[in-house]
Design a protein around this nucleic acid. Structure first.
Lengths: 389, 389
DNA sequence: TCATACGCTGCATTCGACTGCAAACAAATC
DNA sequence: GATTTGTTTGCAGTCGAATGCAGCGTATGA
């Protein structure tokens, strides 16, 4: 109460050109001011709607302005951090806003500011066990910076183009793509001048903003360690051919195997899931006619499938009869039953880097492309016999 | 070419009130028409901007209208499915739109239609292994129906209110909440008249739209089966106390244990992760001084932690010396190393139901609340010794 | 005391698409 | 041929917040 009587006289009465100029202007009055129009509308709503139900319409800044006896622009300014508003005005507006349950409309704001504060995150397959971690981290990073995440999942790699069209419609400020995209699709990002960061993907022919983990380096390291421990006959269960990451892992392993003069490895293709790891192992044994020394799997889940099948279905002892290694370092790889030898990707750092990069790019769209390459961390688990390096 | 000459004369020349009415009106002309204003602006841009760079501004429906020699409203109508537009007009507009790379601005559309086509999905912890499946399914369902997903993760159960405020700002058409919310927070959904569906949660005192799985029924079934197989001393590793689902599972198990006249079970609290399953087991053994017959874990991941610790750390044989059962039926529970006895939740059906429900609710906001209760499916795995029922 | 500066505030316009209305045309009817 | 339908189109105003500008008020200086 005390506060109210303090504020009221000090604020709206000091200067209201509105009231002063209205009576004389009434003679000419080419058209009602916005606020007046609003006043009328509000009156209509009040008489039309049932008394208790405060109307279906949302509360707008005009409603707040009306109730507080000030202009709409004042309300708007109170919700903008750096704006020029007196403390008294801000207090009054906030009070009335709270009374009316006013929330600024981000849609309307976006329209005029041309900033939606939305970022699109494209992810191919959420059930991948690896991506939820990425998504979770990205989400938190963006939320911390006042950006909202519009999630797009690309399930059957089908109508990706249709989905991407949706991205444009929502005027997102930026895109993080952790999904397989054609060069044409990436090119469209550029054409539309929408900042974007690729996650674990790059383009051959064009420099783009990307956060990646050096798969080749990692794969070579794995082979080096396996060879040093005396493994000679290696086999590979690769990721699907359309996965760039998978291809790089395979290529790195293959190259290093060749360099070390080991026998050319059998390679069977998997699709990153548990069963394809199991199937891959069986196929390798069938083709080889005997057990290889070690199997390099394109990701942890396939490695787990491989280990389980070896142990529980084929009665093979992992690691003494067969070493199995994976990639990613997902949580189950650390479980006691597996304790997988793997290359852990620094997911948190990578996601953080991607978020940072995108935010920087939004602030300064014409920066030249940057690629941030992280190294995987070698985790020596119990599914491989490795000597000291 | 042929198409162009066919369309052009047939369309804009037949009736152009614009050209006819403009010259006479020029004498009075109180103010320029919108299209004319636009024309001027476009001219400015054209002369100001470098010739090659087609300007920084986005392409709008006015640009398309200008180029096609028609009105903006015609363009708008061409992008609205059921609108009254001649085929020739539609073809022309689509052609020009393609030439200019025009994409309708969903933000502007939302403002006037009061439909954002956005749904908020609130999820507490994406790394939970169970939620990615839910999210993935929800996403696909909504995308199929033309709704976009705004993702909100609530990490440390901290500033949930601040996050929810963001939900309002974006004028979402609906909310799916698969996170712990206070009754006050849920009440705010109602106050704001935003359709919402709770996933795996309900309120005690108020009927709300919800999709749930009957945890009590499931827990009772588990106990019944364990008891029938002769297990007498049961223990429980519960979910965290603030998880309603976890509490129900515990309660159901406890009730049934009491009904069957078995000894009151030791209950230790976990937090749903692998390590708390391991820790829970150790704690139970410490408190009990010996091995219980069976341990009921609040979810699969804890059950897995429990199994692993029993087998690899304590040298206990699961299931002969100790049965372990879980809840959820997440993918790793099916892996050969575990083959967990568990209650599988029909995630896909539930997510689908939630999406359907929300969509129905958006179409008809005043429907009375509905609760859809699903039953979990009992999966008899290899971590428990169970006779035939 | 008056001039200058600065701090707040309101006005009016803007963002881009949608839509009720009426005008214009085309087709159908008498 | 005149009238009545029906279809297609353009016009102008709308959604809700942001913002350049100008005006008002107060504090400061000379």
């Amino acid at each position: 109460m005390a506060e109210k009587t303090f504020l009221k006289p000090k604020l709206p009465k000091t200067r209201n050109t509105n009231k002063v100029s209205k009576p004389p202007a009434a003679s000419k009055a080419p058209k009602a001011s916005k606020l007046q129009q609003r006043q009328k509308k509000a009156a209509v709503v009040a008489t039309t709607a049932t008394p208790k139900e405060t109307s279906r319409r949302a509360v707008t800044s005009y409603d707040v302005a009306l109730r507080a006896g000030i202009s709409q622009s004042a309300v708007s300014r109170c919700f903008k951090p750096g704006a020029s508003v007196s403390p008294a005005m801000r207090a009054l507006v906030m009070k009335v806003a709270r009374e009316l349950d006013y929330t600024p409309n981000a849609i309307a704001r976006s329209l005029i500011t041309r900033r939606s504060n939305l970022v699109a995150v494209l992810i191919s397959n959420l059930t991948n066990l690896y991506y939820p971690e990425v998504l979770s981290e990205l989400c938190q990073q963006f939320e911390k910076r006042g950006l909202r995440v519009l999630l797009f999942t690309l399930p059957h790699e089908a109508d990706v183009d249709k989905m991407i069209a949706q991205v444009w419609e929502y005027q997102v400020d930026g895109v993080v793509a952790a999904a397989r995209l054609t060069p044409q699709q990436v090119a469209e990002f550029e054409r539309r001048q929408v900042p974007f960061v690729l996650y674990n993907r790059t383009l051959q022919d064009k420099p783009v903003n990307a956060v990646v983990c050096d798969q080749i380096e990692g794969a070579r390291l794995l082979v080096t360690r396996l060879a040093a421990a005396g493994h000679k006959r290696l086999a590979i269960i690769s990721g699907p051919t359309d996965s760039v990451v998978g291809q790089e892992r395979t290529r790195g392993a293959r190259e290093r195997i060749a360099e070390l003069g080991l026998a050319k490895p059998i390679i069977v293709e998997g699709n990153y899931d548990y069963h394809s790891g199991a199937a891959g192992l069986r196929e390798i044994l069938r083709q080889l006619g005997c057990t290889p020394d070690a199997i390099i799997c394109g990701n942890d889940v396939m490695a787990i499938g491989c280990v389980d099948t070896a142990r529980h279905e084929l009665g093979l002892n992992v690691p003494t009869e067969l070493s199995v290694v994976g990639f990613d370092g997902v949580e189950p790889s650390t479980w006691l039953s597996y304790n997988l030898t793997t290359l852990r990707q620094p997911v948190q750092m990578m996601a953080q880097a991607a978020a940072e990069m995108l935010i920087a790019l939004i602030a300064k769209p014409d920066s030249s492309p940057e690629k941030r390459v992280f190294s995987a961390q070698f985790i020596e688990g119990g599914t491989s016999v490795l000597g000291p390096l």
